[in-house]
Design a binder for these strands. Sequence first.
DNA 1: TTATTTAGTTGACTTTGTCAACTAAATTTT
DNA 2: AAAATTTAGTTGACAAAGTCAACTAAATAA
Lengths: 144, 144
Amino acid sequence: MKIEDIQSVRDFNRFYTNIIGLLDNHILDSSYSLPEARVLFELNRQSSCTAREILNVIKIDKSYLSRMLTQFESSGLIRKKTSAEDGRAVQLTLTPKGKKAAYELDTASILQIKNMLKPISDQAQQQLLLHLQKIKLILSNPLT
Amino acid sequence: MKIEDIQSVRDFNRFYTNIIGLLDNHILDSSYSLPEARVLFELNRQSSCTAREILNVIKIDKSYLSRMLTQFESSGLIRKKTSAEDGRAVQLTLTPKGKKAAYELDTASILQIKNMLKPISDQAQQQLLLHLQKIKLILSNPLT
DNA sequence: TTATTTAGTTGACTTTGTCAACTAAATTTT
DNA sequence: AAAATTTAGTTGACAAAGTCAACTAAATAA
């Protein structure tokens, strides 16, 4: 492992952080903040989940999330219901309004990626996808 | 461009954002915040630069940066000096203390990357680097 | 059954980031 | 060259994001 290799990883990280930052900022033009969007996105993946499950995926402060969920409820995006199995936990489900919001965020995000890929030739796009997949694979299963 | 392709880009972005987030959080254990660390890093790349040059690279609010630089000065990390060529601009240079701080952040960051790469076989590491480079290339020169 | 852990909430913050209005120097327009 | 515009940076006044510690109540372990 040479020092230049480390530097090129760092360089890539800077580069990619910028790209993602640009994408995120555009989505932020919507009425939801980035953390709100992330949580809505997670709520939309699971049909019903608890705050804990969201925390396991997103890694934000639980008090922060708690307040966010309270606000989501009062603005009619989710419903909260004490879990039948675990009296401490709260089951969270998107209302139709919440689903609509999640759907719109999703659409905006897809559009962003589309725009990002638009100037790239089909061939290069396929290459890109391959590289992304490989990277994820290497980083998630380091032992191969 | 199929919808699954878009989804796999999004999936990669989520994945990689998490990784970078973890790295950043570790560096944040130092006495500097993430934005402070970024600015120190930039100051360290150029031997002397203006606030504007930093803004071109980092894209944060100028008032935010201005305050940060004031604070850097009063804590002895940088020196500010009105530019000879442009009376509006301020030349920023790291003091020895500032260089030391930048150096320590750099070291911490390098260590983080090292740890991230450690569990990966040499061969896979080389693959990884290749993929990162290719991605950067495709995204920065879309027309090839 | 007492002790510990876990899910979530609440209060009281700090940090991070934004917006608009401003000064002063530089540049462009007329 | 004088007036108008742009650019670099600062400041005030906030809003958003995120953190920390103390708490309740349910679940689990000793």
